[in-house]
Nucleic acid binder design. Structure first.
Lengths: 115, 115
DNA sequence: CCCTTAATTAGTGAGTAGGTTAACTATGGG
DNA sequence: CCCATAGTTAACCTACTCACTAATTAAGGG
């Protein structure tokens, strides 16, 4: 990944199915690393790296108790991502409405030409 | 990028500020490659590659007329991304509600113990 | 104190991302 | 017909991603 702004970090973190699956697991409630790793066949270090990516994106936090790390989902980055998409779609729909209105106007003019 | 499922392609495409800026431009209406490239200092091939990524993710389509390519935004991948996040948040909120209810129950029990 | 368990760090390797410049393709105008 | 314009492809580079295995850190239980 080239950029390290919050939005780019979040999108990049979400661009991996393993990481999305981890988030889905964490949406059901906090879990330890091994609980999160359980459904996957990949090695523990691989999971550890995925968690680091999620943590760096702010999507997950770790709390330490003894030798266990408890992972918790953080919704703020998801909110930011959602806000960007909604904004994008707002402008998109605005433009579509304008286009539709324009076509409606054209239709009126057609009627003038072919009554 | 490791994975090439639709959702991963979309998220990965959105993980770059240049590409997000291109999409924002295209939300205002279709544009040619040079119109899209205009705000950026990077070379034309670099833009071309970004456009290819967006196209592969289904976020953009190209139509050719003479030597110009007209780029148009496609909203379907954004819808899919949005749906994933909403689903994620639904489960998250469900869990928070359950937790809240649980705490409410605990509070009731406290009252029984300390009336 | 040692041993098991939990998890991370180190080191390695293959593949991809994102940028560059230079060369190529394609199309319409003079 | 050639040439300017629009855009892509080729070749190259650096840096990062994602996986692996082996080694390391950290903590609690007998």
């Amino acid at each position: 990944m080239a950029s390290d702004d919050r939005l780019s970090l979040a999108f990049a973190a979400l661009a991996d199915p393993t990481r999305r699956a981890i988030l889905t697991r964490l949406a059901q409630g906090p879990a330890t690393v091994q609980e999160v790793a359980e459904p996957f066949t990949m090695s523990a270090p691989a999971i550890s790296r995925h968690l680091k990516v999620l943590e760096r994106a702010g999507l997950v936090t770790r709390t330490t108790r003894a030798q266990w790390r408890t992972l918790s989902l953080q919704s703020e980055p998801l909110d930011e991502v959602s806000a960007w998409i909604d904004q994008q779609r707002r402008e998109w729909n605005l433009r579509l409405d304008a286009l539709e209105q324009h076509l409606e106007t054209m239709k009126g003019k057609d009627h003038e030409h072919f009554p």
